[in-house]
Design a protein around this nucleic acid. Structure first.
Lengths: 348, 348
DNA sequence: ATGAAAGCGCTAACAG
DNA sequence: CTGTTAGCGCTTTCAT
C-alpha cells in the first residue's frame, strides 16, 4: 500500500537506482531529474524505508535508550533531552525499562542490538565486565558510571556531595548520616567516597545507612533509624529518598530543618515543590542526555545537521571520551543550623 | 560480524530455510533438527534480524508512542506501562516527544510509520480530522481523546470532575472556579462540560478561567485572578496546575484549604508529596497505557503470550473499541469547608 | 548522469 | 520434513 521506490521510479520515468540516488546521494544526479523525482515522491507520499536501507548500509538510524525506571522522576528529563537530540540528528529512539533489573538490561541490549546503531545505558545496574561484553555487540555510551575503555558521561556527584557536606559543616553539624542508594550504583559509591572524605576533613562523624531502594518509600522507612542514629543532618542518595525521609521524620515528630537537616541529590522538579523546599545537589541530566547522544553518534558519516559538539565537550576526535559534567549545590529550605545539643530526640 | 541465518545453517548442516523455520514455525521442523539448529544458533549468538524479517512479513514488532512532553509527570507512568506491556508481547517501542506541537505529531507519525506496526497517540494536540488521516497510513490507538471510528482509550474525567464538584458543594462551597487547560484538549472539554453541569445542579456558580498552559507555572500565574474572582474553591485541569496555584495563592497570603480549596486531576506521584497533600481525581494512566497497547496489538497473529485481554476490557472482538476507564476522587488535604462569608480576601 | 545486476538477511510458496 | 526459488525495498558496484 505505501509507495515504494519502484512506484516513484515508474512515475518519474527513471530507474530505481536513480530514485535511490536522488535521496541518498543527490549530488550524483542531474538537478532537473532530481527535482522531478523528488516531486513524484512527494506526490506519492513516498518515504524511503529505513529498515530496508539499513539492511544494506548497516546503519539503522535508530538508537536505544535503556533505563532502570521510566517512572523515576530522575529519568524523564534525561530521556526527553536524549530523544530530542537524537531526532535533531534524524535518529529515532527506542526506550526500554528494565525495572532496576540487571539481567533485563543485558537481554534488552541483545534484543535491540540489530535494530540500532548504538545504545545508551543509563545508570546501569550491570557489572562493568558485563557492560564491556555487551559493548562488543553494539556501540554503547554509559551514563552515570565509569567503565574503563568505554565512552561515559558522568555527573560529578562527588564534588556535589563534598559541597553539601561542607554546607552542613558550616551550619554546625557534626554528626551526619549518609542515606545510601542501591548496591552497584556508581553514583552511590562516589557520594560515599567523597562525603566520607569531606566529613573526615571537617573533623565530624559520618554514619552510613543502607543500601536502600532509591525511592521515596526507601527514604521514609529509614526515618526511624535516622532518629536513633542521633545525627543532626542527612545526605540522601537522591531527592526521592530525601523527600521520603522528610515525610518519615515528620511522622516521628521531627521537624526539618529545625531538628534535622536533609540534603538530596538530583534536583528533580519535585524538590522545588515540597515543603520544606529541598536543598539538593543539582545534576545536569538534560545535558547528560544530549552529550551521550552526541558521543554515540560522533562518527555518524551522514551527519547532515547538528553534528558538531553541542553538549559539553563531547569532543570531535576519534577518542573514547569520558565526560564529567559539573554539579551544583542548591540551598533551599531543608537545611539549617544544627540544633543545640540535647534538642534532638535522638535515641530516646 | 554478527551471526546471520547462513552461519547457523552452515554450522548445523541444514538449509537456511530450515533455520528460519526452526525459529518462526518450530512445529514444521523435525524436533531433533530443531534442537540442533537452536543449539548452533545459541553457540553463535545468533538472533533473527527483525528488520529483515519485517521486510518480508510486513510486521516489524515495533510500536510507536507519541507524547506531548515526556517530562510532564503525567506521562512517564503511562509510557512505562505501555512499554512494559509491549515488551511482554515481544514488541519494542519507539518513544517520541512532540513538545506539545501538533505539526510535530503529524511528522512523527509519518516518519515512524514504516518502522512500526502501530502508533499510540497520547493526548494528541492534532485535530480529529488529521488523526483520521494519519490513521490511514498506520494503525493508531488514541489515548485521552474521542475520535469517531478509531480505537480510543479514555479516562472518565467527566465523572471525576462531577465527583469533585459534589465534594466541594458538600463542603459548602458555592462559588467555584475552573482553571482550564490547553485549547484543543478533549480532557479539558470534558471537565468543563461535566463540572458546569454539576455546579448548576447544585445551584452554585462556576467561573471559568483559561485556557492555560498545563504546567505548574500556568497555575501559579493564575493565583491573582483566582483571588479576584472571589471563589472559595478551584478545580484545576491537572495536578501540576493545582500545585502551581497553591504556591501562587500562598504567595498572596491565601491559605489552602482554609481560605481556598483546590482540587487537581491526574493524581501524579507529586500530589501525595506536596503540602498540603492534594485532593485530586485519580486517572488510571498505567491501565490506559496497557489497554492501548492491547488494543493496538489485538490482531497480532503470532501473539504467543499475553494475548488475551489484560487491561480493562480491551475486548477480543474484531471491533474498534472505545474504552472509558473509570476515575476516582481522592480526598486529601487541599480541600476543606468553605470559609465563612467575608473571610476570603476576595476583591480587596 | 543513468541503467543493470547483485545482494543485504530473511520468509514464503512450492517441490520433492 | 527439508531444499529450491523468488523476492521484500533498498543501495551499490560496475558498465555505459
Amino acid at each position: 500500500m505505501p509507495a515504494t521506490i519502484r512506484d516513484v521510479a515508474r512515475a518519474s520515468g527513471v530507474h530505481i537506482s536513480t530514485v535511490s540516488r536522488a535521496f541518498s546521494a543527490p549530488h550524483l544526479v542531474n538537478p532537473e531529474t532530481r527535482v522531478r523525482v523528488l516531486a513524484c515522491a512527494e506526490d506519492l507520499g513516498y518515504r524511503p524505508n529505513r529498515a530496508a536501507r539499513a539492511l544494506i548500509t548497516g546503519r539503522t538510524h535508530n538508537i536505544g535508550l535503556i533505563v532502570a525506571d521510566i517512572a523515576n522522576p530522575f529519568f524523564p528529563p534525561l530521556i526527553k533531552a536524549a530523544e530530542g537530540q537524537a531526532r535533531y540528528r534524524d535518529y529515532h529512539v527506542f526506550v526500554a525499562d528494565t525495572n532496576e533489573d540487571a539481567s533485563a538490561e543485558e537481554e534488552l541490549v541483545h534484543a535491540l542490538a540489530k535494530q540500532v546503531d548504538g545504545v545508551l545505558l543509563c545508570s546501569p545496574r550491570m557489572s562493568n565486565s558485563l557492560i564491556e561484553q555487551v559493548s562488543r555487540e553494539v556501540p554503547v555510551v554509559v551514563i552515570n558510571r565509569l567503565v574503563a575503555g568505554l565512552p561515559c558521561v558522568m555527573m560529578d556527584v562527588g564534588q556535589g556531595a563534598r559541597a553539601a557536606v561542607e554546607h552542613l559543616l558550616s551550619l554546625g553539624h557534626r554528626r551526619i548520616a549518609l542515606l545510601g542508594g542501591p548496591r552497584g550504583s556508581w553514583t552511590n559509591r562516589e557520594i560515599r567516597r567523597t562525603a566520607g572524605a569531606a566529613v573526615r576533613v571537617g573533623g565530624a562523624e559520618l554514619t552510613v545507612l543502607g543500601p536502600n531502594h532509591p525511592t521515596e518509600e526507601g527514604g521514609r522507612t529509614m526515618a526511624e533509624q535516622v532518629r536513633r542514629s542521633g545525627v543532626t543532618a542527612v545526605l540522601a542518595y537522591n531527592d526521592l529518598m530525601a523527600i521520603g525521609l522528610i515525610e518519615g521524620l515528620d511522622a516521628l515528630g521531627l521537624r526539618v530543618p529545625e531538628d534535622v537537616s536533609v540534603v538530596g541529590v538530583d534536583d528533580i522538579t519535585l524538590s522545588r515543590l515540597t515543603r520544606p523546599k529541598l536543598t539538593t545537589v543539582a545534576t545536569p541530566t538534560a545535558a547528560a542526555g544530549r552529550t551521550a547522544v552526541d558521543m554515540l553518534l560522533q562518527h555518524d558519516p551522514d551527519a547532515s545537521r547538528g553534528a558538531r559538539g553541542r553538549g559539553a565537550g563531547a569532543g570531535d576526535r576519534r577518542t573514547t571520551a569520558q565526560v564529567m559534567l559539573q554539579t551544583e549545590l542548591v540551598v533551599r529550605d531543608s537545611t539549617g543550623p544544627a540544633p543545640p545539643p540535647g534538642r534532638n530526640a535522638a535515641g530516646t
